[in-house]
Amino acid sequence: MTTPLETLRKKRAESVNRILQKGYLANTRVYVGMATCEIAAGSKDVMEVFQNAISTGKVKDVYLSQKGCAGRCNLEPTVEVVEAGKNPIKYGKVTKERAWDIITKHIINGEVIEEWVIE
């Protein structure tokens, strides 16, 4: 009989597999904060900008996900850009316009916009 631990290990392998199939290993991963507070600060609009950029093919090889509150209340909405082999970058007070700049400057051209980075 399989033990609960074995059952769970199987489930974990399946979960990891599903995450990988969603494109987790992409060159760039983008996380947008989507807790009540972040949504109130406008993160839904920011999410939309990233979603559009991906669905229209403006950016390729990007994994987009939402996340809960990380705790930087005064800097919300926050967006995190994780690129393979680089330090993760976290942007604060991201608006629709800033999101667009992050796409064109950072994700496409690889220039970090230091002014908005949360150090």
């Binding site: 979960s15 995450i19 509150c69």
Partner: peptide, 17 residues
Amino acid sequence: LRNCGIIDPENIDDYIA
């Protein structure tokens, strides 16, 4: 809060992983 701000809260796969 170990997973807060790291995982997608609406995706159980993220938590299980």
